[in-house]
C-alpha cells in the first residue's frame, strides 16, 4: 500500500460523539432460518472505543449476528440496542414490532458496514461511492462532500483512484473504498463482516492496515475475521461463537494462550 493510513477520521471531522457508553447491547438474540436455528440466545455488550473480534466455524452464526446489528436480518426474539436505541424494532406492550422503514434507515446511518464482497456501487466511481450517501441521505452540499470524499480516499491510500470504477480496482482497493464509503457517514460503530476473506493474500495487509488505524483512532468496531495476527494486536476482546451461541469471550492474551473450551482450542489450533 502506498503510504500508511493515518488520521482517517480527521477527514470526517473526528470521532463522532457517542450518545452512550454502551454502543451495542444485544440481549438473548434468537433467530431461525426456517427450521434451522442460527442464533440461540446471543448476548454481547460492546463499549465505546472497543474492538471486538468474533471468530467461529462457518455456520456458527457470527455473520448472521453481525447482520442483525444493523437489521439486515430480522430477529425472532431478544433485544438489540445500538447507540442506546432498539434497532429495527419498537417495543409495544413487551413485544417487538418492526419499526418503520424511515426510522430503520435513520439508525443505519450511524452504523457502518463493510461486506466480504465489498458491494461497491458498480455504476459509481470510487468518489461517487463515497459521496453518494452523504449527498443523498444526509443532504450535504455536493462540493463539500467531494472535498471530504477526496480527503477520505487519500487517507486510505487511494488519492489517485477517485475516478476509477469498481471494476477497475483490485479487491484490496475496492475494500478500502468500501471502508471510506462507510466512514463518510460518520458512523459511531463499524461492522466488518469477513472483510479480507475474499481478498488475494497480498491485498489483505492494506485493508488490515486501514482497520488497524481506525482502531487506533478510537472507532468502535465489531470484526468477524480469522486474521489472528490482526486480532492479537488490535482486539480488546475476542469472542468465540459456536453453534449459534457465544462459547467464550475474553482479552486476546488469555483467549489465545489459555482458551477455556476444548472447542475453542480445537478451532484455534486449526486456524493458527
Amino acid at each position: 500500500m502506498t503510504g500508511a493510513a493515518e488520521n482517517i477520521l480527521a477527514s470526517v471531522g473526528g470521532l463522532p460523539e457517542a450518545s452512550t457508553d454502551e454502543v451495542v447491547r444485544a440481549i438473548d438474540v434468537r433467530k431461525s432460518f426456517g427450521p434451522l436455528q442460527v442464533l440461540k440466545g446471543v448476548s454481547l455488550t460492546v463499549r465505546r472505543g472497543e474492538v471486538v473480534v468474533i471468530i467461529g466455524a462457518s455456520g456458527s452464526g457470527k455473520t448472521t449476528f453481525v447482520r442483525c446489528l444493523n437489521h439486515l436480518e430480522k430477529i425472532d426474539s431478544g433485544r438489540i440496542l445500538v447507540n442506546g436505541h432498539l434497532i429495527g424494532y419498537r417495543e409495544v406492550a413487551g413485544r417487538l414490532v418492526e419499526d418503520r422503514e424511515r426510522n430503520i434507515a435513520r439508525q443505519r446511518r450511524e452504523i457502518g458496514m463493510v461486506f466480504q464482497r465489498f458491494n461497491l456501487f458498480q455504476h459509481k466511481t470510487a468518489l461517487g461511492n463515497v459521496i453518494e450517501a452523504p449527498v443523498h441521505v444526509l443532504g450535504i452540499p455536493k462540493a463539500e462532500a467531494i472535498a471530504m470524499g477526496c480527503t477520505l480516499l487519500s487517507r486510505v491510500g487511494l488519492a489517485d483512484k477517485t475516478d476509477a470504477y469498481p471494476s477497475q480496482l483490485s479487491g484490496g482497493q475496492q475494500q478500502r473504498v468500501a471502508i471510506a464509503r462507510s466512514l463518510a457517514m460518520k458512523p459511531r460503530l463499524m461492522l466488518f463482516d469477513e472483510p479480507t476473506s475474499a481478498l488475494d493474500p497480498e491485498m489483505i495487509g492494506e485493508v488490515l492496515e486501514v482497520m488497524r488505524e481506525l482502531a487506533r483512532e478510537g472507532m468502535t468496531m465489531i470484526v468477524v475475521s480469522h486474521e489472528m495476527g490482526f486480532a492479537r494486536e488490535v482486539a480488546d476482546r475476542m469472542v468465540m461463537m459456536d453453534d449459534g451461541q457465544i462459547l467464550e469471550e475474553g482479552p486476546p492474551e488469555q483467549f489465545f494462550r489459555n482458551p477455556a473450551h476444548k472447542r475453542t482450542q480445537a478451532f484455534l489450533s486449526k486456524i493458527l
Partner: peptide, 26 residues
C-alpha cells in the same frame, strides 16, 4: 446483485432512494 441493495441500506438509504439511485440505474 442483492449486495448492492444491502450496501445501500447499510448507508441509511430508504427503499425508494436505493431503488432510484442504486438499483434502477444498474
Amino acid at each position: 446483485d442483492p449486495g448492492q441493495t444491502e450496501a445501500a441500506k447499510s448507508v441509511g438509504m430508504t427503499y425508494a432512494l436505493l431503488m432510484r439511485r442504486i438499483v434502477l440505474p444498474q
